[in-house]
Amino acid sequence: MSLSVCDSQGLILGTRSSTRPADASGTFALGGDLPVNRLGYGAMQLTGPGVWGEPRDPDEAVRVLRRAVELGVTFIDTADAYGPFVNEQLIRKALHPYTDDLVIATKGGVTRPGPDDWRPNGRPEYLRQRVELSLRHLGLERIDLYQLHRIDPDVPLAEQLGALAQLQQEGKLRHLGLSEVTVEELKEARTHADIVSVQNLYNLANRSAEDVLTYAEAENIAFIPWFPIATGELARPGSPLDAASRLHNASPAQLALAWLLRRSPVMLPIPGTSSAVHLEENVNAARVRLDDEQFGALTAAA
């Protein structure tokens, strides 16, 4: 018999019989035809310092990726710039051949001269080259979701998206997304291509992209918050998040992720970690249920 764990406030902490906690996050259909579990995994941390080079522990990186899939994660986010290329190659090593329900989303459109150095490059020939390399490194014939990593201010947006739309027509990309954009940029982009996702900085403590989320929700566009579990001062001793964490036997990170999942049905958090232990903690956030009062209290705390 399945047993849900609740406290006196009604916060559901989990179902002990489940081995795939990510299933509890619910699903969202990217582009209306590509369902994924809403709580995914961001693979960026599976590289060296400065998002550069090989991870400190390559074997643990492989374990983390395989464990994510075992826990029910069906959406993994990466980019050709993570490494560069190291991240995509790790994903292939750990998970290829991929299960039918696993969606690998990658990004292109920046150059990496060195650690912590990111420079937009949206020239059509560069984007085409990066797509071809990502296909090779991931071992795919078609990438399910390809995101423009950053809009290049020196190249017309129509040219950047036109190049990706052409690759889409060639069958090499299924869906297109954007990263770190304003509402105005997102609206303009949609005049050039069908955009199914947007990936912006957003978390409980930083909601500067609230207007982008509101627009995405209205248009049924997936909103992928990067840096999703940054809690900052909200997790300090004696804070509302710290108090809620102790009261409900859930970590601040789990509550922050639960808040994101409760915030919008188009929200697809992608918490990242290089540790299998932290991965399990993060994914188990999908089992946390905040009622209206709890959700409102955390919202107001920030």
Rank of each mutant, 00 (worst) to 15 (best):
E185R: 05
A81Q: 10
L164F: 01
Q166D: 14
V69T: 01
N206H: 14
W259Q: 12
L135V: 11
E233L: 12
R236Q: 15
T19H: 02
N206I: 13
P271G: 05
A300K: 14
E141C: 08
G177N: 01
A253Y: 02
P153K: 09
L257I: 14
P97K: 04
S197E: 00
L176K: 12
I270R: 02
V51I: 15
G162L: 06
M44P: 02
L133G: 13
D80F: 11
V36M: 06
L138V: 05
R130N: 14
Y202P: 03
L279D: 00
G26L: 11
S17G: 12
E233C: 11
G232F: 00
G10F: 07
R56T: 05
M267W: 00
T299W: 11
S134C: 03
R246A: 08
W226T: 07
A256F: 04
I221N: 10
L173N: 04
D57M: 09
A165S: 14
G26V: 06
F223P: 06
E210M: 09
D194C: 09
L71V: 06
S134P: 01
R92L: 07
N200L: 00
D116F: 05
K187E: 15
R289P: 01
F28R: 08
R136V: 01
I76F: 08
P225E: 03
A81L: 10
R190W: 05
D292G: 15
L213C: 07
H149Y: 03
I104G: 02
A29K: 08
R136D: 07
L255S: 03
W52D: 03
A222R: 13
P84D: 04
P153Y: 08
S208L: 15
A43R: 07
A286H: 07
S134Y: 10
D152M: 02
L279T: 03
A243Y: 11
A79K: 01
D101C: 07
S274D: 11
Y41M: 02
E210H: 05
Y126A: 05
P120Y: 06
P35H: 04
L161V: 05
P153Q: 13
D77K: 09
V155R: 04
R112A: 03
V86H: 00
D292T: 09
S274F: 07
E54A: 13
L161N: 05
L135G: 14
S274E: 10
A158T: 08
W226R: 04
L135D: 15
L34A: 05
A250K: 09
E293N: 13
C6Y: 15
N220C: 00
V36I: 13
